[in-house]
Design a protein around this nucleic acid. Structure first.
Length: 424
RNA sequence: AGAGAGGUGGCCGAGUGGUCGAAGGCGCACGCUUGGAAAGCGUGUAUACGGCAACGUAUCGAGGGUUCGAAUCCCUUCCUCUCUGCCA
């Protein structure tokens, strides 16, 4: 959520930013925001004045009662009746104005960073880095769902029986490989200074609002209605919300967290060849990294996260590329996002395996996550997160890129975690 | 799940209808003191919104109500603790 003050002071910059995202009716919405805000402030001044008068009258009445001048008190009481009505009406107006402003602000996405290019879709994302060799497996390369079947690693049908499509069952060495990856990712993150957390997998409404999943995107989350809780779509939500409402001091920075969680996504509207196998699931595992930063260092931090993720992919010896997302493809809450994609040899396409973003103050404003700056004022912090990494597609990438006629080789760094070096 | 107790500032804790944004203590900051430190003494120390400011308003878990006036009374709700039950 953008700050009203910022919109008031930098209207043109906001318009330019929204244009990069192709946000419709930006000017109209901003004008509405500004007029709602004016209305809100005007109403508040009126209400404050009424309440101030009412308060001082009440004090006088109290004095009169104390000194026994009951008649004077009774006289004043009549006056307060009118003020009460006025206050009630103004309170309603103020609430209505504040709610309207809030609703408008919820609709406006974050302003993209200056390096973000305009664009409509993933076609317009820029590749900024690529590394690793794409193995030449020729015609024999199999997609991971066939490999998974051949070596009995993942059972999609069994998951369908238990739950439904998109809830696979990992078996034997498939399960072990996945567990090895989780441990390896966590160890890498911890070595880089991230503190490990195990967090709840269900969240309440306030948490969903804090990180921006609610109120608009509830259709993407599973909702446990009896208790009004949501299954997390990503570990970002519980991890970031640990800091909701906090007032930090500068010495608390940087805050670096990591955690392994399953992720649950309804993925309403997804279908077709692109969702086969592990490509798109309703439940998948992910190791997440989250950082809370001083605004001055948040972009350094983002670069640090990108380098960290590169390091992991380099060790896994997977061919990957990094994209800077264009305005139209950048998520609602992010100012700048880098996507990581691994080349999937068996499908001959790139698969997104990580996304690292700086949200600047957008989430912090919703979370009321602030710190005391050097001037002693409270100021919004910056939040960032990234996947390190999303499991299924890394698994798919390993199966497909490491396949040989004799079986699937295990990347060297994972052998100690797996306890075997070959799936055959 | 049933019964009871309770939720007050960074922390502890007083406050049961008015002068209470809230005593006292701890912590923290600054100053005095000191060769330096500790101790001692003094001053200051919540957040949000509005206002150039003086200041005003709101906030004692949250929401609603009674009252001229609510931290204090009533209702709803959330959370915590104790006991009982159940249970990985």
């Amino acid at each position: 959520m953008l700050q009203v003050q910022f919109i008031r002071d930098h209207k043109q910059a906001v318009l330019d930013g929204l244009a990069k995202r192709n946000f419709a009716n930006a000017e109209t919405v901003l004008n509405e925001v500004i007029s709602s805000d004016e209305n809100r402030r005007k109403t508040q001044v009126l209400l404050d004045n009424v309440l101030a008068e009412s308060n001082s009258l009440s004090k006088e009445i109290g004095q009169f009662f104390k000194s026994g001048e009951v008649q004077k008190a009774t006289l004043l009481k009549e006056k307060t009746g009118q003020l009460k009505e006025a206050a009630k009406k103004l309170t309603e107006e103020l609430n209505a104005a504040a709610n309207k402003l809030q609703e408008l602000l919820y609709q406006i996405p974050n302003i993209p960073h200056s390096s973000v290019q305009p664009g409509n879709s993933e076609e317009d994302n820029e590749e900024i880095f690529a590394e690793g060799e794409i193995p030449n497996l020729g015609e024999t390369a199999l997609p991971h769902w066939e490999l998974a079947k051949k070596y009995d690693l993942i059972d999609f049908e069994l998951g369908t029986k238990i739950t439904g499509a998109g809830f696979p069952v990992y078996k034997g060495k498939g399960a072990k490989l996945q567990r090895a990856l989780i441990n390896y990712f966590l160890d890498k993150n911890i070595a880089a200074g991230y503190k490990e957390y195990q967090v709840p997998h269900l969240i309440n409404e306030a948490s969903g609002i804090g990180t921006g999943q609610l109120p608009d995107k509830e259709g993407q989350m599973y909702h446990a209605t009896v208790d009004d809780l949501y299954l997390i779509p990503t570990g970002e939500v519980p991890i970031t919300n640990m800091f909701r409402g906090n007032l930090l001091s500068e010495s608390d920075f940087p805050i670096k967290c990591t955690g392994y969680t399953p992720c649950f996504r309804r993925e309403a509207g997804s279908y077709g060849a692109h969702v086969r196998g592990l490509n798109r699931l309703h439940q998948f595992d992910k190791v997440e990294i989250v950082r809370i930063q001083h605004p001055d260092t948040s972009y350094e931090a983002l670069d640090g996260m990108v380098e960290h993720i590169k390091g992991i992919l380099r060790e896994l010896k997977l061919p990957y590329r990094v994209l800077r997302l264009c305005g139209g493809d950048t998520g609602f809450t992010a100012a700048l996002t880098f996507d990581f994609e691994v080349f999937s040899t068996g499908q001959n396409r790139w698969l997104e395996i990580s996304s690292a973003s700086n949200f600047e103050t957008f989430q912090a404003n919703r979370l009321k996550l602030r710190f005391k700056n050097k001037q002693g004022k409270s100021q919004l912090a910056h939040t960032l997160n990234g996947s390190s990494l999303a499991l299924p597609r890394v698994l798919a990438g390993i199966l497909e890129n490491y396949q040989t006629v004799d079986g699937i080789k295990i990347p060297e760094v994972l052998v100690p975690y797996c306890g075997f070096d070959m799936i055959d």
